[in-house]
């Protein structure tokens, strides 16, 4: 059963120490919820970016909430490098699991299918492979002359995403952002904030149904309009580029980051 809760109550349901799945900025990111987590002093997260991170991940790192970061990249896009991420790497404050995008998807796919690993092309000869403890090179069991990489399953304890719409039954419309669907399928629990809640079932409309995450994967829904600001939400609202630049500037120093995070909390 999907619970319907307030955003604050949802934040209370995410404890320190979990493996937390997050979507890329603009594709289901939820910086407003990240702020709640930071205010609650969340710590020791293993963050899984599916497959890359942006401002919301940088904020968690800046707040000292991340101990392990599994991602293919962290960037603020047009606003440049992610400042807290760069600082944490230099100072050795996070354990980095550098990945490559399709390998993250392969690991999530393994979890989705309930198998221990997934084979994937490429990667052999890279330092990404050399430094990743959960990837191995094996022999293709059907062709012994071929070497191939296998990545172990990635199963987040909790995935936290923002989506355009849910219905009263807990079904969530994701549309064509299937990588968010994959992330939710792979995770033990998925918490979703949404722009709006529909009174009629999203599964009733054949045109929508294929893009809907069914309620059985959705542990909790909170209505939280504008929660993707300033990173944006696909097909709903654009990134607020000026605000991301403000963040990029402020977060250049730990003091600036702190001032930013305790300052304005929404566009309104």
């Amino acid at each position: 059963m999907t619970e319907f809760v307030s955003p604050e109550a949802m934040a209370d349901m995410i404890p320190s120490g979990v493996k937390l799945g997050l979507a890329p900025d603009g594709s289901g990111s939820c910086p407003a919820m990240i702020r709640f987590l930071i205010e609650r002093g969340i710590r020791d997260l293993h963050v899984v970016c599916a497959p890359i991170g942006g401002m919301q991940v940088d904020m968690l790192i800046g707040a000292g909430a991340v101990s392990v970061l599994e991602t293919s990249a962290v960037s603020l896009g047009e606003a440049g490098g992610a400042p807290c991420f760069g600082r944490a790497i230099r100072n050795g404050e996070i354990r980095m699991l550098d990945a490559t995008c399709p390998a993250v998807f392969a690991g999530l796919s393994a979890a989705e299918k309930g198998v221990p690993f997934m084979p994937i092309r490429g990667i052999i000869g890279s330092d990404v492979l050399k430094n990743h403890p959960n990837w191995k090179v094996t022999t293709n069991p059907f062709d012994e002359s071929e070497k191939i990489v296998v990545v172990s399953a990635i199963q987040p304890d909790i995935t936290l995403i923002h989506a355009p719409e849910a219905d009263r039954f807990g079904n969530v419309r994701l549309g064509r952002r299937r990588e968010v669907m994959l992330l939710a399928h792979a995770s033990k629990k998925t918490f979703v904030t949404v722009e709006r809640i529909s009174e009629t079932s999203l599964l009733d409309d054949e045109k929508l149904a294929a893009g809907v995450l069914p309620a059985m994967y959705v542990s909790a829904v909170a209505e939280y309009k504008g929660a993707a600001w300033p990173t944006g939400l696909y097909a709903e609202y654009e990134v607020d580029a000026g605000e991301v630049e403000n963040y990029a500037r402020a977060a250049r120093t730990p003091e600036g980051f702190l001032a930013y995070i305790t300052g304005t909390r929404s566009a309104a």
């Binding site: 890359i52 991602t71 293919s72 990249a73 962290v74 960037s75 490098g81 992610a82 991420f85 760069g86 790497i89 230099r90 100072n91 050795g92 980095m96 550098d98 990945a99 490559t100 995008c101 399709p102 390998a103 994937i120 092309r121 490429g122 990667i123 890279s126 330092d127 990404v128 492979l129 430094n131």
Partner: peptide, 21 residues
């Protein structure tokens, strides 16, 4: 140096895979 690179860029994205394919 790695992992505590003094100069850190975003990351490998899909390169380790697409470069092969």
């Amino acid at each position: 140096g790695y992992p505590n690179s003094p100069v850190r860029w975003p990351g490998s994205y899909g390169s380790a895979y697409l470069y092969f394919l």
